[in-house]
C-alpha cells in the first residue's frame, strides 16, 4: 500500500513526532517545565478523547465528564491516603502500586458510569446535558463535604504511585507512561469507531428509530459507550492526580466539564487526533494569555465563541477541507 500524504496524515505524523520529541527538547532546555506541561496536555488529551468517544459518534453531549476525571483521581489519592495513615478502607489497607490502583480507578469509574449512564440515558437532548451535569455536581458536593479527605482544600499525595514496584521520580519517565496510555486509549477509540459498535452508535445518532428497527438495542450500545468513556476518563484522572500529587474537588468542577467540551469541539470531533490538537491549543493559549494579562478570559471567551460560530468541525476539520 502506498502512503499518500494527505494533510491529515501528515498532521497526525507530526503530532506523533512532536510527542516523541518532547523528552529530547526537555533534555536540551535542561528544565522540567516543558515535560510537565507536555504531560498536562497529554492527560487532558486523554480525558477529551474519552469524552469525544461519546459526544462525537454517539451524539450524547455529556456536561459532566469531569465526574470521571475527578473520581479516578480520588481513587488513587484515597488508596494512597489510607495506606499512608494505616487506616483500612472497607477492610482494604490501600495501595500505592499503579498497576493496582489505576485499573481500580478505571473500574470504579466504569461502575459509576454504568449507574449514572443507565439513569441519564433515559433522557435525551438538552435533558441529557442537564442530568449529566446534575450527577457531576452531586459527586462534586460529596467530595466537598468529605472533610476527612480535606473537603474543598483537597488531598495531597505523599508520592507518585509505584509502577511495578519502581518509583517514578523522573518526569520524563512519567511523561512516557502518559504518552503510552494516551496511545492505547486512542488506538482503542479508533478501533472502536471503525467497528460495528461505532457504526451502530453513529447510526443511532443519525436516526434512533431506524437503528432500533434494524434490531439493535440502542440503549445497551449507548450505555456500553458511556461505561468505556467513564473508564478512560478515570485513567486520565488517575494520571492527573499523579502528575500534580494532589486532588481536590476542583477536578470535578462543572467548569472543567465545560473546558473538556471546548477542547473536543476546538480540536474537531471526527478524529482521535482532534483532542490532542484541542488540548494543546487550549492549554497553550491559557498559559500564554494568563502569563500576559490576568484578564485573559476577556480574550479567551470571545475566542471560544468564534470557534463555536465559525469552526464547527474544529481545527482538525480545517485540514480535511483543504484536501478536497
Amino acid at each position: 500500500m502506498m502512503f499518500s500524504p494527505t494533510p491529515r496524515k501528515l498532521a497526525a505524523l507530526a503530532i506523533i513526532l512532536v510527542l516523541l520529541a518532547v523528552p529530547f527538547w526537555a533534555a536540551a532546555s535542561g528544565s522540567n517545565y516543558v515535560v510537565t506541561f507536555a504531560s498536562r496536555i497529554v492527560i487532558y488529551a486523554m480525558v477529551c478523547v474519552s469524552l469525544q468517544s461519546i459526544v462525537g459518534q454517539a451524539g450524547l453531549v455529556s456536561f459532566g465528564h469531569s465526574l470521571y476525571f475527578g473520581l479516578g483521581g480520588y481513587v488513587v489519592a484515597l488508596a494512597s491516603f489510607h495506606l499512608g495513615e494505616g487506616i483500612p478502607l472497607l477492610g482494604w489497607s490501600g495501595s500505592n502500586e499503579a498497576l493496582v490502583v489505576w485499573p481500580l480507578a478505571m473500574a470504579v469509574c466504569a461502575f459509576a458510569a454504568l449507574i449514572f449512564g443507565a439513569l441519564s440515558l433515559r433522557t435525551t437532548g438538552v435533558y441529557f446535558i442537564m442530568i449529566t451535569l446534575a450527577f457531576a455536581q452531586m459527586v462534586f458536593f460529596i467530595f466537598v463535604g468529605l472533610k476527612f479527605y480535606g473537603g474543598t482544600d483537597g488531598l495531597p499525595l505523599n508520592a507518585r504511585n509505584l509502577f511495578a514496584g519502581q518509583r517514578i521520580v523522573d518526569p520524563v519517565t512519567f511523561y512516557g507512561i502518559c504518552v503510552a496510555c494516551l496511545g492505547l486509549v486512542m488506538l482503542f477509540c479508533w478501533r472502536l469507531s471503525r467497528s460495528r459498535f461505532g457504526l451502530v452508535l453513529r447510526g443511532a445518532a443519525a436516526s434512533e428509530r431506524r437503528t432500533l428497527s434494524l434490531g439493535f438495542p440502542v440503549y445497551a450500545y449507548r450505555l456500553a459507550a458511556c461505561v468505556m468513556a467513564g473508564a478512560m476518563g478515570g485513567l486520565a484522572g488517575a494520571l492527573w492526580a499523579n502528575l500534580n500529587r494532589f486532588v481536590s474537588p476542583d477536578m470535578l468542577s462543572w467548569l472543567r466539564s465545560g473546558e473538556f467540551l471546548v477542547i473536543i469541539v476546538l480540536g474537531g470531533l471526527s478524529s482521535p487526533f482532534g483532542p490532542i490538537v484541542g488540548a494543546a491549543a487550549v492549554l497553550i493559549i491559557e498559559s500564554v494569555l494568563s502569563g500576559w494579562t490576568d484578564r485573559w478570559e476577556v480574550i479567551f471567551g470571545p475566542f471560544i465563541v468564534l470557534v463555536a460560530l465559525f469552526a464547527p468541525n474544529g481545527l482538525w476539520g480545517l485540514l480535511r477541507s483543504r484536501r478536497s
Binding site: 437532548g125 446535558i129 465545560g258 469541539v265 478570559e297
Partner: peptide, 15 residues
C-alpha cells in the same frame, strides 16, 4: 446544542 453550550460558555468567561 453543543455549539450553543460552547458559545455561551465562552460568553461566561468573557463576562
Amino acid at each position: 446544542h453543543l455549539a450553543q453550550v460552547l458559545a455561551t460558555f465562552g460568553l461566561i468567561l468573557f463576562f
